[in-house]
Computed example of a mutant assay.
Amino acid sequence: MTDTDVRLTFKWVDGVKGLEHMTDAWAALARQTGADIYAAPVWVLTWWAHFGRGKTLRTLVAYDAQGQLVALLPFMIYPVWLGPVRIRIAKLAATDPNTVIFQLAATETALKNSCAEALNGLLDDGRAHLVSFTPASEHGTMLAAVRNGVAPGLALIDTPAGTHTVFELPDTFEGYLANLSKKRRGQYRRDLKHLQNDHGLTTRMVHPDAHQFGDFVDFHNRQWQEVGKGGHFVDWPGSAAFYCDLADATQQGQETWFVEQQGQDGPLATQFCLVKGQTCHWRLPARSTDPELERLSLGKIGLVQMIEQLIAAGVTRIEAGVGAYGYKLVYGGESVPTHRLIVSRRSGISPVLLKLCLGWARVLHLVYYRLWFGRVAPRLRAVIPLKNKSLWSSWIKTRI
């Protein structure tokens, strides 16, 4: 059966309160479809409580002919101002430039028609001037669904937007090691033995609560502050409080994971992951910057030990973040293209507003992010005691 054979009934739900009575059915649909944690209620509702201010939440809900929930697609709409000009942008709710989604909370037969309905509903009545699904992975279902859901009268921007790294995991850890080069396997075993014998390294997996997550924030911050940078929790305002609350909210479902490595003198490294079903999103590492531990490749040992724990738990795929990192590829990752995916109306003011928004985004990225944030500010901090600052919200909003 194809999605064109399925008769669907659509409904728009506005705001958070309209979703509260649907969380059980939504969570069940997410489990049934293998949706990523980013499409599950625990993530979306916790995220919205922290970052929803100034945004409008609109959720498309789809039911089949038997009245069963078959798709739930939440979107956030927010304004970007270019002087007196206001551009309304819609994106999947609770996402940011680092959020890569493989599977939405929608059945295979309902996804295309639900995306088509969402695009028309979001762009009607001036609610949004454009809808962005960036970054869209070539290994995800969203790319084809949006491409096929663009109706006449709509324009689609579909261009390369860099890469992200994906690990497709075998059934056993020995199978994973067998896929590495002989050199890498030997190096891993030698360094692991030294870390265990000389530093008392042990590895365990835990599901942290808010207090434990706060300790991880401190650990991660110390690592980056030692090299003069802020780290994730400084760069992204409000993220520490959000993840602490998420850790508590996911305790029962065990979706927040730490793979911790302890030594005889305290913590050595921690890998922070979000796991839903068979999919893991590896969010952040933190580790000691002791030169001796660096020499023994502690960071790479942490990656491989995390993979061992995930394989043992039945995880089959790791999404390891946007950007190109050579060490991830050496240890079994694959560089997967992502796309900039933006839909707007072909007529009226929308094409003009889209060009203005993309132009402003390029200027901000070049002048603010690449020049100031990436080059000038770090050099100034090397000679002047300037405090690390969070990323500008204007830059975050234009990452479409």
Rank of each mutant, 00 (worst) to 15 (best):
A49I: 05
Q305S: 01
Q187T: 12
T9D: 15
V275I: 07
Y327W: 14
P170E: 11
T172D: 04
P285D: 12
F10I: 07
L246Y: 09
I400T: 10
R295N: 07
L156A: 08
M142Y: 05
T163V: 11
I89H: 05
F75E: 08
G266N: 05
D209K: 05
L371D: 09
K300F: 12
T316D: 07
P74W: 08
R375I: 15
D235S: 14
V234G: 02
A161V: 00
T270F: 00
I384N: 03
L366Q: 13
Q196C: 10
V383P: 08
G162K: 04
D218V: 03
T256I: 05
V6E: 15
P208N: 09
F75G: 07
D198H: 12
G54H: 09
E294M: 14
A210H: 10
L104Y: 11
H21G: 10
N98C: 14
A144T: 13
F133I: 09
D265I: 01
L386H: 15
G15A: 04
I307Q: 03
R222L: 03
H129E: 09
A27M: 08
V376K: 00
P337Q: 06
S288Q: 04
M205N: 05
I301Q: 13
W392Q: 03
D3F: 01
T165F: 04
D209M: 03
T141A: 11
L60T: 08
Q309V: 04
T338R: 00
K91N: 05
Y63L: 12
L169C: 02
G314C: 07
A247T: 02
R346L: 14
G314R: 12
Q252F: 01
I77Y: 06
I89D: 06
Q225A: 11
G18K: 06
R346W: 02
M76Q: 09
L298G: 09
H220F: 02
